[in-house]
Write a protein that binds this DNA or RNA. Structure first.
Lengths: 187, 187
DNA sequence: GGTTCCATGTAAGGTGTTACATGATTCA
DNA sequence: TGAATCATGTAACACCTTACATGGAACC
């Protein structure tokens, strides 16, 4: 089984979640939306074909029998799949990619004759960060149920999933502060 | 001229740059790479067809005659184009989209038997932020040539382009600090 | 006049979302 | 059994990048 074409981002997410526990594609969708969606989006149109592709590759395998063409199907990761996942974790990563329409509007909005346009661009940016922040806080609630968020000094003891989501929270929080500070009295 | 299909992200960038000054497609590519590339990527395969599409729509128009099939062509924005750009600036924005493989690896890397995997994921994250920071600093140099960066208290007086790029710099800087602080002695 | 870089353009394929279709499951 | 929801699957399209092709411009 030599090296094949590289897997898609969605495929790695599938492997990652199955490495935590066997589950169905739908479970993966729900989990992803509650945790990594902000920086590693998953959509059904990608997920289900990838499940088949990964199974054909031997990286995952179905548990039990399919009860019909659209029945719930559980999957588990194979040993070979775990090896591939570990290789991926150790390999160099693709560059960060961002598409931020609010920043673009802030960039281009300075020359508008209407002076409110820039202020509106800044406000929109701020609101987006706030939404992101709320989302990530709720995601942290999923990851750390029934307990208070630990103080920063404890953060180093957290597991990596918590670290990743917490990173997003930190970024959103400081972004909001920054916008407020730069804008000063204007808002 | 009723409303038509919405323009692509690349099209708005073209309009934005042409609203600053008439220029060629190649000029736009260069400018974009030096300024908004981190949050609003542009590639030639998108740019040149969009120039034609925008021209057909009447939002931009060629300056002078085309000197041949592959000769340099300059463009300018039309009044109609300026109106459309202003509408876009005032309209609601698409949600922020991020694809960050390093964060994904941090998320999934906690269960790896090899304890070095998580540390490596964190180091990779840190290095990416550093690269981003360096890039943005140089972009600021382009936007603010021949002068020192103004102190934060002056930032509110900056134009919107500077604000946008500066925002990226701030985000990258705090991100790097965060990673260093959370990781603590481990790096 | 030939080489190198500038500038435009195109083709192919990867990536990803949305919307919809279909069949299972559940529950009244 | 009928309705609502769960879960899988697919089709269509938007977007983007990469790699390449082609012709102009500049420089020696």
């Amino acid at each position: 089984m030599t090296d094949q074409a590289p897997l898609t981002p969605t495929a790695w997410a599938i492997m990652g979640f199955l490495s935590l526990a066997p589950q169905s594609g739908y479970d993966i969708l729900r989990q992803a939306k509650e945790s990594i969606a902000e920086f590693w989006g998953i959509s059904p149109g990608q997920l289900y074909p990838q499940l088949q592709a990964l199974s054909a590759r031997g990286y995952i395998r179905p548990i039990g029998e399919a009860q019909g063409p659209h029945a719930r199907q559980h999957w588990e990761i194979t040993e070979q799949g775990r090896d591939a996942l570990l290789d991926w974790l150790k390999a160099p990563s693709a560059p960060l990619r961002v598409r931020d329409e609010r920043l673009a509007k802030l960039f281009f909005g300075s020359r508008a004759e209407d002076p409110g346009v820039r202020d509106q661009a800044i406000a929109a940016l701020q609101e987006e960060r706030r939404r992101l922040l709320a989302h990530i806080d709720s995601a942290l609630g999923v990851l750390l149920p029934d307990q208070e968020l630990p103080p920063p000094s404890e953060a180093a003891k957290l597991g990596a999933p918590e670290l990743a989501v917490r990173y997003g929270a930190h970024a959103a929080r400081t972004a909001e502060h920054w916008v407020r500070r730069v804008v000063g009295r204007k808002l």
